[in-house]
Design a protein around this nucleic acid. Sequence first.
DNA 1: CCTACCGATCGGTAGG
DNA 2: CCTACCGATCGGTAGG
Lengths: 211, 211
Amino acid sequence: MAPGSGSADGTGGMWADVAPDASRRLLLAAVDSFADLGYHGTSTRQIAAAAGMSAGALYVHYRTKADLLFQIALTVHESVLAELEGAVGGVEGHAARVRALMYAFARWHARHHRAARVIQNELGALDAAHARRIAAIRRRVRALVREEVRAGAQAGAFDVADIEGTARAMSSLAIDVCRWYRPEGPRSPEEIGALTAHLSLRMLGARPLPS
Amino acid sequence: MAPGSGSADGTGGMWADVAPDASRRLLLAAVDSFADLGYHGTSTRQIAAAAGMSAGALYVHYRTKADLLFQIALTVHESVLAELEGAVGGVEGHAARVRALMYAFARWHARHHRAARVIQNELGALDAAHARRIAAIRRRVRALVREEVRAGAQAGAFDVADIEGTARAMSSLAIDVCRWYRPEGPRSPEEIGALTAHLSLRMLGARPLPS
DNA sequence: CCTACCGATCGGTAGG
DNA sequence: CCTACCGATCGGTAGG
């Protein structure tokens, strides 16, 4: 939670830094429409209309439709990374760190399920250079999870035969929350976070075993 | 594996029943392109060209582009359901049944990751009536997993506080394989199936605990 | 930031 | 199953 970043607090302030206001409105409208209809299923005219502007106004703020998607992808990925780094910061103990990490990971994907769906489903629409920049952030996220698993296994706190595969499964479990989560469903983002953390510790064979 | 169904053997014969040959070629071309570019990102001309036909020929075999997507979604969902029902058929013991089920579930999503991506990412492009038919099959799949968890928990073979949530996590783990799986990666579909089954039993607190 | 417009491409159809 | 075409809509731009 670097001062002024406004994107690591996990309370929906992910877009606070986007200025001016018209740029932010366009961006939020694009996230909404991309999540429902996909990148290719959304027209620049729809986005502009939802933001209360004429069709051409989008190009005052973004060079192309693809550039708008990239700005979304960059903001969202930096938000996830900051959230996870904030979650484990200062936490002691292998199990406690994994619990904090996976709680935050899954909760973020419930809270921001629409933005998360965009970056999971529409990454293929990015051009090669943009895709590389996003891939680098995604590698850092995966490494963060894997490092917690590796450290705990090495210390004997976890019983893990396949560190890479188990870490991948943990990330997968948290990320896929954005696919099935519905705000009107029975579970809050916090409850989903707690369950994901619990199941992660079980997958890791954490001792003592979580009840 | 009903005789002549050709879609439950898990060896890629999912499209064997699609006739005539031109219909199948169009369908396979559509799966390929939908997986890479999405439904809205794919033109009917691309599909027809990849199937070696002119642009208008698609409409000889499918009423609309949306109908083509629905035929794909129906075939794919019936394939998953048949695969899972085949996997647990005749297997005795709660842990053994879960192992067989989750092995098949994850392996299917690795083997058919392109078709699976289409039905995960493009379900929103179906119209309401088609979406309802697909949703019914998906409920049966989720119920199949949940019933195994419930039965094992009731019998004392598993230690599960949240049956619904844990079953959801198991399905989620298997389904998300299609998002990250790469054929050139280090793990085979069979290895991914085995790992997913193992981690599922751990999430369930199966006794004796799997090593 | 709007109006008006560009060429290109879309899903789908008519006629053969 | 192809050729030729329909109206509609697309991403993007010029000029103000």
